[in-house]
């Protein structure tokens, strides 16, 4: 496709999406919906291609080569895993049949628990341990620099009180003195300050990213219009 064709199609596609700003006018509103449906169709096609080329094709290529193996079990085991995965995928289609629900539920259970176990290990080794280590590390020059001391204390207080704020399970009749005492309320309020500040900053930085894209798109329309 030539450069000018790409620019022309991009221009039309951008205008079709921006037609949303004109509101619910007849014909104009259908332009936006058409653009969205084109987007869905293309996304589905690209997802299919990416899944095939990125996951299925490399596995197929590997199992055809007797010298390569994903695991220490050898090429024959790889073939078995591949066939089992295909079988699992196809058996999941039997979900609407109630009498076979034990089978489809078991396959779903394997998928979910392997994901859950991976998530648990990832959360422990990738987030919990490194972050807990980071908030307990004291800077070397802490006694020399008063600002560094205040900042370190603030980060520790902010993290701990923010974590305390996430207390969203309170059963009726529970003896939750920590949650209902004045100290608990004060710590939660402090945590809320840090969490709301963070959410405000995240909102602002996301807005900035979107603004950059918005400016780029409007600039593109103006350039092409000129």
């Amino acid at each position: 496709m030539s450069e000018s064709a790409i620019t022309l199609i991009s221009f039309v596609a951008t205008l079709m999406v921006f037609s949303y700003l004109l509101g619910d006018l007849p014909l104009v509103s259908s332009l936006y919906r058409t653009a969205v449906y084109i987007f869905i169709g293309m996304s589905a096609a690209f997802t299919l291609v990416a899944t095939y080329e990125g996951v299925i094709l490399p596995y197929l290529a590997d199992i055809q080569d007797a010298n390569t193996s994903w695991t220490a079990l050898g090429n024959q085991a790889d073939v078995t895993i591949f066939v089992t995965a295909l079988l699992f995928g196809l058996l999941l289609l039997l979900k609407p049949i109630a009498s076979l629900s034990w089978l489809t539920n078991s396959i779903l259970a394997v998928l979910i628990v392997v994901g859950a176990a991976t998530a648990v290990v990832g959360a422990l080794t990738g987030t919990l341990f490194p972050l807990l280590h980071a908030i307990t590390v004291v800077p070397e020059d802490i006694t020399a620099d008063f600002t560094a001391l205040v900042n370190t204390v603030l980060i520790f207080l902010g993290t701990m009180s923010g974590l305390f704020y996430f207390q969203f399970q309170l059963r009726q009749g529970d003896d939750d003195s920590a949650g209902r005492s004045r100290v608990g309320y004060a710590v939660r309020s402090l945590g809320k300050i840090f969490v709301v500040t963070t959410l405000g900053a995240i909102y602002a930085t996301t807005m900035l990213s979107m603004l950059t894209i918005f400016v780029e798109r409007v600039g593109f329309l103006m350039r092409f219009g000129v």
Binding site: V120, T159, G162, T198
Partner: peptide, 22 residues
């Protein structure tokens, strides 16, 4: 500082929630 602390609290909350749910 405050956003860094809040982000760590949120990430730790997500990690703990993931562990509990898992």
């Amino acid at each position: 500082i405050p956003v860094g602390a809040g982000a760590r609290a949120i990430l730790l909350g997500i990690a703990l929630g993931t562990v509990v749910a898992g």
